[in-house]
Nucleic acid binder design. Sequence first.
DNA 1: ACTACTTGTCATACG
DNA 2: CACGTATGACAAGTA
Length: 778
Amino acid sequence: MLSLKKYLTEGLLQFTILLSLIGVRVDVDTYLTSQLPPLREIILGPSSAYTQTQFHNLRNTLDGYGIHPKSIDLDNYFTARRLLSQVRALDRFQVPTTEVNAWLVHRDPEGSVSGSQPSAGLALESSSGLQDVTGPDNGVRESETEQGFSEDLEDLGAVAPPVSGDLTKEDIDLIDILWRQDIDLGAGREVFDYSHRQKEQDVDKDLRDGGEQEDTWAGEGAEALARNLLVDGETGESFPAQVPGGEDQTALSLEECLRLLEATCPFGENAEFPADVSSLTEVVPSESEPPALENNLLSPLLTGTESPFDLEQQWQDLMSIMEMQAMEVNSSASEILYSAPPGDPLSTNYSLAPNTPINQNVSLHQASLGGCSQDFSLFSPEVESLSVAGSSTLLPLVPSNSTSLNSTFGSTNLAGLFFPPQLNGTANDTAGPELPDPLGGLLDEAMLDEISLMDLAIEEGFNPVQASQLEDEFDSDSGLSLDSSHSPSSLSSSEGSSTSSSSSSSSSSSSSSSSTSSSASSSFSEEGAVGYSSDSETLDLEEAEGAVGYQPEYSKFCRMSYQDPSQLSCLPYLEHVGHNHTYNMAPSALDAADLPPPSALKKGSKEKQADFLDKQMSRDEHRARAMKIPFTNDKIINLPVEEFNELLSKYQLSEAQLSLIRDIRRRGKNKMAAQNCRKRKLDTILNLERDVEDLQRDKARLLREKVEFLRSLRQMKQKVQSLYQEVFGRLRDENGRPYSPSQYALQYAGDGSVLLIPRTMADQQARRQERKPKDRRK
DNA sequence: ACTACTTGTCATACG
DNA sequence: CACGTATGACAAGTA
């Protein structure tokens, strides 16, 4: 696990840094901290749709967002520097490969690829290479690349499906029928030949003409190539992490990132990327200037929604650790009230002037808690100095009078403490008018539960240790929430999921939900609902397109655009095995299965091709062939009703044939509908998942805020307590003697005055105040 | 052999 | 009503 983390983190760091340089939102924080689950999800991804689209959208989302300042420490800074240099090295290493593979890819359309079968890795790199070489505009370039690939694959696909060697009489008849049909439609063989040679789209004629080529292609080479190109498609989607064998892919992605950076680099005019990198590296500050790193390297990523969250979390963790240590240190002395243990940050913070920034033990958490110190600032400096002195003088006083003091504060519930009933007595001139306001403001918060908790702590002796224990319970609670918010897919992954799901839900299916992100919507509308575009384009292209069944593997790992049927054509050949019950099966493929000139087929591949064909053909296709349906299932399914009826009217079809055709059409449409439905369902689930993550994050944040309030409240109480001690200790009766804490207590009045009352009365008041909130709660 | 997952299909409801 | 779509349920295939 650790090694995995290190390995993944490094690669991802590189990628992330580069993405950040481009301005893409990346939650580096998630990577840098020990959040392994999201990492694992991104790389090994349980649902690749999830992560894939996430990457997609990471790239598309150009609003900087999400890196947390907390991750900018020296370690990370050094890591960033080191990784940047590595990135540069990677770029250097990758360039030659890129060129070579670009050449390979470009050779594909010329049909000469069969000789040079690239390995999977090569093909993979070739895609990025192709992308690298193509135009400067990234988006256009990418789409162009995909288009090019689709065409390439189309071409490959045109020959890839093996052709059944053993032709029955029936087959030959069907061939003739189809041929006649083509002629009826005005397409002679020459047209197909031409289109094959020129456009390389016509699978049908390709198969008729090039039997030898088919044999060449139908072999393992074609499959390997298909696989490679599948990987190509993935890389084309810039989703390297999904691909097994991470290092290379990561490098490629980095390279791609560098290219992207080259195109979109906000740093200016540097034309060459290495120069960019170096300049960026220079922009990255020297070790003595961490803020510069923050600003220049990561600032595009800082937008803060997540940032305070994680910063606070870190403070929180730090606090917890400190408190734990304090608890351990003080466990033995915990009985001593008010003894401020050296390790207790709260006590220390409290005993010193709260606003003093030079408090080493001050809870870092409160550094971000402006309200707390502000509240303290409401105390007059005199009081604060008194409190400082008082806390020190309290130490010897407490053991002797612990019970009385405890009863004084413990029996006074918070409301009573802060809003005591008006009682007659002498108003204290020091703290009287100032006390209620800040404290009353605190009470305005809806934290009655916590207050009661704190009351419990107070009642149990105002023991800071116990209070902190209580608080730690909250901490652990929030910690759990934090974990949960991080665990499933954490911040970054949740972002990814959100984008993914949102992009998904914005699919072409109109009924699909709701969601938001518009920038990413294109990514899913591309991958989107399995549409059988029944427009004329389909008619034109369907001859060329291969089987367009919804390919699970492909859709999983390679969510590129296949709304366009021409791009779809690559799919079936990418998934060379597996069920391919495609209704969009290229008529040419069907025809080819039936039509190939027997002489052109080589004996060796006959059986293989037959098997392959059988697997490729859906049941309905088999039925259609058996029933001698004179047109393709693709047409049956995808034609608009009018054209479909028109087509039916052209032929004298038996009732059984008509029935079968209608069944095929119904099933085909329903199949598409089912696919869309499932996709929609998945999107819904992903959206829900994202919502849950958001809610968990909110919950964690609220819990943290709650704990912060509790903490500040505790400090307030301590402050009040010290002031109480101070004031009480200075009170003198008419004889000039101090009042005994066991007999008298100070009572705060609602108007801010402080009354000195006998302890019996104070206890009664306290009990009365104690009941009120409980009743109110019920 | 068993299981989980995917995909196709059917039935049904709805627009 | 015909047609297309959506969706739950089931079956078959696959890993």
